[in-house]
Design a protein around this nucleic acid. Structure first.
Length: 773
DNA sequence: GAGCACTGC
């Protein structure tokens, strides 16, 4: 079966395609269907052969006589010059994309009215004494019936029965996540197969499963279970399975038609996580040949037409939520200093507004810490007595024990202010918030496929995000949201939605997964919002260089081995290569440490000297950052994974535990791909060669004045000051990544011998690349 | 001589 939904498009042009493919093979050594289509597409849109050359050069092809010739030939061979991009059109007479019957709509509207009234009643009905008297289970069942979704049970089931794909819009508090899978179970869907409900986050999958197992009065892991990385709490009995969407993607690699499932419910679809978006495309395809499977797309955004359009006009079913009104205030004029404005607003709310806690959205750790200091200082400066203000902070890198503080009760008569990053927008919910202060900014990652460079920059949030932030104040009562920008800039400067993750990330790993699933032409893959062609082609190019794809774009044996590892392909390649150098034991530790990210070392502001000293102790002998990370892991392991050791060495214990989990998983996977676990503790060269096998495309050589030039696509870069080699200036290095902050910095650097590049990647480097100029 | 939001397999 072919997954190329539009593969018929070029039929009849096979001769042209073959010709283009051959020429591309000659030009760049490999040629996948994507590159063929890309080149033909360029020629179609180009106005001249020179135009084709320009575009190809812009992509990264080296200028040469061959390239010019190719451009001229393809320009003359492509027979037609067209064509406005094909637009998807749908018959959509009423313009709502809603195929539900009128009666059903009315039924919904009626219920929305009812449930709005109910919200007020509910709060006052039950006294604590009464609820105590009831059995816990009875209360649970009663709770189920008071959820907004309850009255929709039958019409919802009917809609699911009648349509293969249904988009469900359920506001927060509607009960969709816990109830719909139970309704499906009660209606008999689980007799045909499991019901999966995917979540973007691990904790959500776990906690929802726990809740549902209580409601159904079964043991967690029996009929109701969850499955997340490192933890599969399911059994043969399991019929309702909550899981992370990434986990379902992994399962898809082993079971491409999801035969053991009868319903897939993709929850929190509006978040548009990379794995959710990939799932959309795959599920749409599965639904085509598995008419018995039901797909539910559940989103909390009112505008679900995009989901509906994508799934061929799937009907939209709306379930009301339970929310309180939120009053939104804008500033009259733009603020000069939003941090200052946020602090002033906190104090104003504290002094003038009725009780209720405050949530402030800031961009990062440093900002939060300085806001905390300023706020403390200002409060101490008040001459007269004011009610106590308890300052709490939360961001993901904050040690767990300090994170817990935001949930602790505070003295009566005092008020809590929580200074938070985006973590409080969706990932965690704090009760008792009545006021939100929103400067309208966040840090967002962007990825430039041309340079392969990531950068993290402060940018304006979207309208959707602003709404989500405001909503955080109206969960337990009416709320207020103070936006530190003008109503006009809200209207004109904020985008409607945050660009989906898939358009902001390095796609190498996604591309390898999709290729492993047998998708032949990724430019035709049905993405809801396609990533740029360039970003897909760069990913293919890298996978070819790594040996994961052959020269016509098919997955190789190495590629299949790599795809088994839940890692960035360069890390997977490093592991696969470690077999040859007999050092897989060391290399999986390094891969685990690298894949944890940059939160291994702990750098408190006031103990920098000690922290730096501790960090450098792992770099003895200028071994490079990769080996240093291995030293950290091994030292920790030698202390029997001691927490105390972590504190003494300024190492974050949470990150180390996560590295251990990943390492254990990788060790298990070695066997699956038939790589022996072998160690060579004293042969650093072997380890470095394995690293080079994964990261050869990230090589750089020393220039004057301590700067470096990357070898393949020349750019000037620098060693990040946190690197152990920052003062060492080795002549040749490989690096894990380049990040753009104040300069272009290479992170995680290791020295190498230039001849290794030619030895390890002869298809990528020639002697002339590494000889002295 | 810097400073990094949030997820996930």
């Amino acid at each position: 079966m072919s997954r190329d939904s539009k593969s018929g498009e070029w039929e009849g042009n096979d001769a042209l395609k073959t010709w283009v493919s051959d020429r591309l093979l000659a030009l760049q050594g490999f040629s996948t269907p994507e590159f063929v289509e890309y080149a033909i597409g360029l020629a179609k849109q180009a106005t001249s052969a020179a135009d084709v050359v320009g575009k190809l050069e812009e992509y990264g092809f080296a200028l040469s006589d061959d390239l010019h010739l190719f451009a001229e030939e393809i320009f003359s061979k492509v027979p037609w010059k067209v064509s406005p991009r094909k637009q998807k059109t749908y018959d959509n007479e009423d313009g709502t994309g809603n195929g539900l019957g009128k009666a059903m709509l009315e039924d919904q509207i009626e219920f929305i009215k009812e449930s709005m009234l109910k919200v007020d009643d509910e709060m006052s009905i039950e006294s604590p004494e009464i609820s105590k008297a009831k059995s816990e289970l009875e209360t649970l069942h009663e709770d189920r019936r008071t959820l907004p979704i309850y009255a929709h049970r039958d019409s919802l089931l009917k809609a699911i029965e009648e349509h293969q794909v249904l988009v469900i819009v359920g506001e927060t508090g509607s009960g969709k996540t816990t109830q719909i899978p139970q309704y499906l179970h009660e209606a008999g869907y689980t007799k045909r197969g499991k019901v999966a409900c995917t979540q973007p986050r691990r904790v959500a999958a776990m906690s929802v499963a726990a809740r549902v197992s209580q409601e159904m009065d079964v043991k967690l892991g029996h009929e109701v279970g969850y499955s997340i990385r490192f933890e599969d709490c399911t059994s043969e009995k399991t019929v309702l399975k909550y899981m992370t969407d990434g986990k379902l993607l992994r399962e898809l690699l082993g079971e491409p038609d999801l035969a053991s499932y009868s319903v897939i419910m993709v929850d929190e679809a509006h978040e548009r996580a990379v794995s959710t978006d990939v799932l959309f495309g795959l599920l749409k395809d599965i639904a085509r040949f598995r008419k018995d499977i039901k797909i539910l797309i559940s989103s909390a955004t009112p505008d679900a037409s995009k989901f509906s359009d994508f799934f061929d006009c799937a009907p939209i079913y709306r379930i009301p939520g339970r929310r309180y009104p939120v009053e939104i205030q804008y500033t009259k004029a733009p603020v000069a200093d939003y941090l200052d404005a946020a602090i002033v607003t906190v104090l104003q709310v504290h002094l003038t507004q009725s009780p209720g806690d405050i949530l402030v959205f800031l961009t990062g750790q440093e900002e939060i810490e300085s806001a905390e200091e300023i706020l403390k200082h200002k409060i101490n400066g008040f001459v007269s007595e004011i009610p106590e203000l308890v300052i709490c902070k939360i961001f993901s890198n904050l040690p767990t024990e300090l994170q817990a503080k935001i949930f602790q009760p505070i003295p009566i008569g005092s008020r809590k202010v929580v200074l938070a990053t985006n973590i409080a927008e969706a990932s965690l919910t704090i009760d008792g918030i009545n006021y939100v202060i929103d400067p309208g900014l966040c840090k967002m990652e962007s990825y430039n496929p041309r340079t392969g460079m990531e950068s993290l920059q402060v940018t304006s949030i979207s309208k959707a995000s602003a709404a989500q932030r405001a909503g955080r104040s109206g969960r337990t009562g009416p709320g207020k949201c103070f936006r530190l920008y003008t109503a006009d800039s809200y209207k004109t400067k904020l985008d409607d939605n945050t660009p989906p993750g898939i358009q902001r990330t390095n796609l190498t790993s996604v591309v390898l997964s999709l290729k492993s699933l047998g998708i032949q032409n990724l430019l035709n893959f049905d993405f809801m919002d396609p990533p740029s062609n360039e970003s897909l082609l760069k990913a293919l190019e890298l996978l070819f260089a790594l040996g994961a794809l052959n020269k016509v774009g098919e997955v190789t044996k190495v590629g299949r081995q790599m795809a088994e590892f839940p890692l960035d392909p360069m890390l997977s390649k490093m592991i696969v290569a470690s077999d040859k150098y007999r050092c897989s034991d060391e290399v999986i530790s390094i891969a685990a440490m690298l894949s944890v990210g940059n939160s291994i070392f702990y750098h408190p502001k006031d103990e920098q000297v000690h922290a730096d000293h501790a960090r450098m102790s792992f770099h003895t002998g200028n071994v490079g950052d990769h080996i240093a990370l291995m030293n950290v892991y091994n030292s920790w392991r030698e202390t029997n994974y001691s927490t105390q050791w972590c504190y003494e060495n300024y190492v974050q214990v949470r990150s180390m535990r996560s590295a251990r989990d990943i390492r254990d998983q990788l060790e298990g996977l070695l066997e699956r791909v038939e790589i022996e676990l072998t160690g060579c503790p004293n042969d650093l060269q072997a380890i470095k060669k394995a690293i080079t096998s994964g990261f050869f495309s990230h090589s750089a050589r020393l220039q004057n004045y301590g700067s470096y030039r990357t070898v393949k696509h020349p750019r000037i870069v620098h060693i990040h000051p946190s690197s152990g080699l920052a003062d060492n200036f080795p002549r040749w290095v490989v690096y894990q990544e380049v990040v753009l902050t104040t300069k272009e910095y290479m992170r995680n650097v290791t020295e190498l011998k230039p001849e290794w590049l030619v030895e390890i990647a002869p298809h990528y480097y020639q002697m002339k690349d590494v000889e002295d100029a």
